[in-house]
């Protein structure tokens, strides 16, 4: 079995809507004014999206994740090194899960 027409249609359909949404954001933003409220709104999206990504993961997480998040934040603030912050977060969560048995 290689594939079927149904699978090809489904995959192409998924690909089309995905690229449409990705391109759509950029094209819609191009129609927004470059100053005032719309510009301020675009400027605040990255921070808001990141906060929205991170917050539920930390609230839902166990003590291990909370401690690892503190370690990540501390290392990043002290070193400003993204890789060091990421690595210490992963290492901390690994060790804490072993210790706490979570």
């Amino acid at each position: 079995m290689f594939t079927s027409p149904e699978a090809v249609i489904a995959i192409f359909g998924m690909a089309m809507v995905t690229i449409a949404v990705k391109a759509g954001g950029l094209l819609l933003a191009d129609r927004l004014p470059r100053e005032g409220f719309a510009a301020a709104w675009l400027r605040h999206i990255p921070g808001a999206v990141l906060a929205a990504l991170v917050a539920p993961a930390l609230v839902k997480g166990s003590l291990a994740e909370v401690i690892a998040a503190l370690a990540t934040g501390t290392v990043y603030i002290l070193t400003r090194n993204l890789f060091a912050a990421m690595a210490s977060g992963v290492l901390t969560v690994y060790l804490m899960r072993l210790l706490l048995g979570a």
């Binding site: 990141l50 991170v54 930390l58 934040g73 990043y76 990421m86």
Partner: peptide
């Protein structure tokens, strides 16, 4: 999560 948290702080 760790990467995105560090980037948020940045």
């Amino acid at each position: 999560t760790a990467t995105f948290l560090a980037l948020l702080l940045g």
